[in-house]
C-alpha cells in the first residue's frame, strides 16, 4: 500500500508541478483572477453600495449571502451529526472500564482563578469582534469561535459539568437553531418588505435609514445569527468529543 500510494502521489505531484508553469506569477496584479470584473466590482463599489469598509464582511454577508446561510446550515448539521454518532447505549464492559479509570478530578487553584478572570474578558472580546466586523477583521465566524472557545476554557479549567451548568447541551443546540432562524428570518423579513430574499436594502421601510445603511444593518443582523450558531456548535462538538457523548467526566 505504501509503495502504491507513493507512486500515485509522485505521478500526481509531477503532473501538478508541470501544470504550475502556466499559473500567473505570484502577486501579479494583472492575473485573470485579479482582473476579472467581479472582484474589481467588489473592491470599487462595495463601500458605496453597503457602507461597510471591510470588503470581506460586505461580500460574505451581503453579495454572497446565500452561500454563507448554507455554510452555517452545514456547521449546524455537523454538530447534529456528531451528537447522533456519539449518543447511544453504552456497552456494559466499556462503562465498567470507564468507571474504574476515571475519578473526579481536583480543580487546580491557580488554573481556576486565572480562567475565572479570563473568561469574561474573552467573551467581551468575542462580542467586540462580532460587532466590529464592519470596520476591522472579524465578524460572526471569528467572534463565534472565540465565544465557543471561552466556554471550552471553562470546561477545561474546571470540569465539563461547570460549563454545562451554564450552557447545557440542549440549550446549545437550541441556540444554534436560533442563529439560523435569525439569519433566515432576516431574509424573510426582506421578502415581506418587498425585496428579494436576503436583499437588505428592502429593510429601509422598517428603519429610519436609507437603503445603503439598511444593508449595513442587515449585515450586522446576519453576523449575529452566524455567531450564535458557530459558538453553540463549537461548544457542543467539544462537549461531545471530550466525554464520548455521555456529557460527564471528560477531559
Amino acid at each position: 500500500m505504501k509503495t502504491l500510494g507513493a507512486i500515485a502521489v509522485i505521478i500526481t505531484g509531477a503532473l501538478l508541478l508541470y501544470a504550475s508553469e502556466d499559473f500567473p506569477s505570484w502577486g501579479d496584479p494583472h492575473s485573470p483572477a485579479n482582473q476579472y470584473r467581479v472582484s474589481s466590482h467588489y473592491v470599487q463599489n462595495s463601500f458605496g453600495e453597503t457602507s461597510v469598509p471591510n470588503m470581506v464582511t460586505a461580500i460574505l454577508a451581503d453579495y454572497r449571502g446565500y452561500d454563507t446561510l448554507f455554510e452555517t446550515v452545514v456547521i449546524f448539521t455537523a454538530g447534529i451529526a456528531i451528537i447522533a454518532i456519539l449518543r447511544g447505549p453504552i456497552d456494559k464492559r466499556v462503562r465498567l472500564r470507564l468507571a474504574s479509570e476515571r475519578k473526579m478530578r481536583e480543580t487546580n487553584l491557580i488554573l481556576a482563578q486565572t480562567s475565572r478572570i479570563l473568561v469574561p474578558v474573552i467573551q467581551l472580546f468575542a462580542l467586540y469582534v462580532i460587532a466590529h466586523g464592519h470596520h476591522s477583521p472579524g465578524g460572526g465566524f471569528q467572534g463565534g469561535v472565540i465565544f465557543g472557545a471561552s466556554l471550552i476554557l471553562l470546561a477545561l479549567s474546571f470540569q465539563l459539568q461547570t460549563a454545562l451548568d451554564r450552557v447545557s447541551e440542549k440549550k446549545a443546540v437550541t441556540l444554534a437553531a436560533i442563529g439560523i432562524l435569525i439569519y433566515a428570518g432576516i431574509g424573510f423579513v426582506c421578502l415581506l418588505a418587498g425585496g428579494n430574499f436576503l436583499d437588505y436594502s428592502a429593510l429601509q421601510v422598517l428603519m429610519p435609514v436609507g437603503a445603503i445603511e439598511a444593508r449595513s444593518h442587515g449585515i450586522l443582523g446576519v453576523e449575529i445569527g452566524v455567531a450564535f450558531t458557530v459558538a453553540a456548535i463549537m461548544f457542543a462538538i467539544y462537549a461531545n468529543l471530550s466525554s464520548h457523548g455521555r456529557m460527564k467526566g471528560g477531559l
Binding site: 470581506v56 469561535v145 472565540i146 472557545a149
Partner: peptide, 16 residues
C-alpha cells in the same frame, strides 16, 4: 480575515 479565522479555529478549536 482568513488569518483571524485560522488563529481562532485552526490553532484553537481544532487542536482541542
Amino acid at each position: 480575515d482568513v488569518a483571524f479565522t485560522e488563529a481562532a479555529v485552526g490553532a484553537g478549536a481544532s487542536t482541542m
